[in-house]
């Protein structure tokens, strides 16, 4: 894991200021989507060996939710953008 995450609001900050939530690629199903869709949403993960988009919260900074794309094999960070700029994932 790289030591710094380039927060779009605060600039490059130590990764210890952030809290990772997990995979940002999962879309919350509609309430009536059925058991299979909900099972996949709650429990199944792509868990890629390579590029991975994740939600990181800048807990000790601007307190914005970011989408950070990084490599799980090399720990290189490719990008960090405010989650709101991506919009609703529904």
């Amino acid at each position: 894991m790289a030591s710094l995450i380039a927060c779009p609001h605060c600039g490059p900050r130590p990764k210890e200021e952030f809290t990772v939530r997990g995979d940002a690629g999962i879309t919350r199903p509609t309430p009536d989507a059925g058991q299979e869709a909900w099972h996949a949403y709650v429990y199944l993960r792509d868990n890629p060996r390579g590029r991975h988009k994740e939600h990181w919260h800048h807990t000790s900074g601007c307190r914005r939710w970011l989408i950070v794309e990084r490599d799980t094999m090399t720990h290189v960070i490719y990008s960090a953008v405010d989650a709101a700029t991506i919009g609703e994932t529904v």
């Binding site: 894991m1 990764k15 990772v20 995979d23 094999m73 720990h75």
Partner: peptide, 14 residues
Amino acid sequence: IDGYNSYAQRGNLA
């Protein structure tokens, strides 16, 4: 654990 997804067999100083 460090807390983030990783296949790297190495972690962070924090």
